[in-house]
Design a binder for these strands. Structure first.
Lengths: 351, 351
DNA sequence: TTGTATGCGTTATCAG
DNA sequence: CTGATAACGCATACAA
């Protein structure tokens, strides 16, 4: 709709310059302070007459308060900085959706940066982000092994200055964290699958150093061991769908032997594995079982649907925001529940 | 790695306060100006001795320049604001990935906001964003019908003040735009499918007012008409996977009649349709053809793989950044190429 | 209720 | 090469 009094933006007086509060005040014939009060602070303490004058002037000039200036004046911002490894990955975009949702509820703007799964880059980004003096920093990276004193220092400096931090899925650091029990969930999955008759497994995991990948792999193997299964193959590949495809293809080329089920440490990788199987003329679920981890949306879309571990990704994003805003114990870890979801990609094994 | 000289952040002197440039200058025993020069401006004009002192002091204090203050002082920022409808949707997350990639190349920080496919919300967000005085604003919304003078005003005010704008997939507005020919591509798809023997179609589209949805639907129908096919059904549903599922289910419940192919205006919706078909015991591709639009990653993962129109989403995100940064003709439209991708979900129709 | 004056953390101009 | 000092746009304590 055209709107009531159509805002007559871009007054001819201001050329190539955004209107400032001073412009509005002048236009309205009031002081800077008065204009500031009606446009931002409590509207109460200003005359009803001046309120309308200022509002009208602001509309006429198309005024939008300079948030940078507001931030320096106030000493605080209304933004939350989010760091992810890869926004195109449904795992991270679901997390981000949860964060964005809560941020909007809280009237916060989200700034986002990607840290391509490199620890150095992540550190650099956090330093830059810290410069924005955001209200909150949320890091949803793929934690790497090795000492991360630098990152801890960086975040420590930030919290020492009053900033709030929340980490997603990287427990063990001295900051509030929302996490899942990757090891336990993978173990449960292994037990569930062993219980359904599968006896020979191959695990497809990401490169060394990735916590998530390693924990899920270890947990799965632990579950197998508990079920009395000691014999399995572990393939290391890229942490992506292409990586999953490559591993699947390699496995097929090497001869599947009598492997009955392929467990990939993420759904994205599992989808790649399934594609490799189909390209080789094999039918997932019938000829060979496949299982993943995360329960991304696409896990329901494939046929057969993918057996996996359901992770409440969007909710984890929400909780991370809540956790950061609540400003609780620095080392608090919120463990989110996971559940095994058995679907068609793992029908009962044909003995 | 633990890092060489380990940064001794959070000096005990500063409690709950981020170190400022003044702190660094004092610590280093130099003036504010000198500290500023070495930490930001050209390093050339400052003594080699002072450089190391300042650097050492900054490291010791864990200094990170306050970007808000920098922005107000400089009068410009190094950020790009990105507006999307739904970051969890692979369509948007792919676009975002392209934007983020180019932004990083250009040393820009990306701030992101979601505008749930509501025009009012989008307008509000742009106003807020404008307050950030970003270097660039990119809007990847789902353009709605009807006059949008308000949005044009808002963006006009922004560009008048020197801001750069790029729109994605919403041509017709007086701003640089990267777009695809939805109508033409859908028409081509219809012709290709008609050429493969399909004769009876149903189209599943989103609610009225969504440009993308309408153009693709219209184009598809035009293609059918050109092929001499006048008889078809059009279903309106939610613009989401659930919407696709619902429409598919509804169609099945009403009786498919002799419909041979279902075209959904997005892949996401098409995946929902396929799921509905399978839940009803039908086999997509064999019992009935299915086609989508966008070629999201999941289109390759389903079985049979989804016939669709390939849209270079990530590249569109990149181009949008390039277009905005190049600051060309305000009304320039970059048309991106699309291609029909025929896959297993539309085998030749069984006559 | 309104206006004045000062400060926020940086940059940039201008003398030394 | 370095150091005062005036902006930048806005908020706010204080005075009127």
């Amino acid at each position: 709709m055209g709107g009531k009094t159509h805002s007559n933006t871009s007054g001819p007086v201001l050329q190539g310059r955004a209107p400032t509060l001073a412009d509005v005040a002048r236009e309205a014939g009031v002081s800077l302070a008065t204009a500031s009060r009606v446009l931002n602070g409590s509207t109460r303490t200003v005359g009803k007459d001046n309120v309308t004058r200022v509002l009208r002037a602001a509309d006429k000039l198309g005024y939008a308060p300079n948030l940078s200036a507001q931030a320096t004046a106030r000493g605080s911002t209304r933004t939350v900085a989010l760091v992810v490894s890869d926004i195109a990955d449904p795992y991270f975009s679901s997390l981000a959706a949860g964060v964005l949702e809560r941020a909007e509820d809280a009237g916060l703007i989200v700034t986002m940066a990607v840290a391509d799964r490199s620890a150095g880059q992540e550190l650099r980004i956090v330093t830059t982000l810290r410069g924005h003096r955001p209200h909150v920093i949320i890091i949803a990276g793929s934690r790497l092994d090795g000492p991360q004193d630098d990152l801890i220092d960086e975040l420590g400096a930030y919290t020492a200055a009053g900033g709030r931090v929340a980490l997603i899925s990287q427990p063990g650091l001295p900051f509030p964290t929302v996490a899942i029990d990757n090891t336990g969930a993978a173990k449960d999955l292994a037990l569930a699958l062993a219980g359904r008759g599968y006896g020979r497994f191959a695990v497809i995991r990401g490169p060394d150093g990735l916590h998530t990948s390693r924990d899920r792999c270890d947990g799965f193997l632990a579950g197998l061991a508990q079920a009395g299964i000691e014999e399995e193959r572990v393939l290391v590949t890229e942490f992506s769908e292409d990586g999953g495809y490559a591993a699947g293809a390699r496995l097929i080329a090497d001869g599947l032997g009598n492997v009955e089920l392929l467990f990939a440490v993420t759904d994205v990788m599992a989808l790649g594995v399934m594609r490799a199987l189909r390209d080789a003329g094999l039918v997932p679920g019938r000829d060979i079982g496949v299982a993943g981890f995360d329960d991304i949306a696409a896990a329901m879309d494939v046929d057969p649907a993918l057996t996996t571990v359901r992770v409440p990704l969007r909710d984890m994003g929400r909780r991370a925001m809540d956790l950061a805003l609540s400003g609780t114990d620095p080392a608090e870890v919120v463990w989110m529940p996971t559940t095994c979801v058995i679907r068609g990609s793992t029908r009962d094994a044909l003995v």
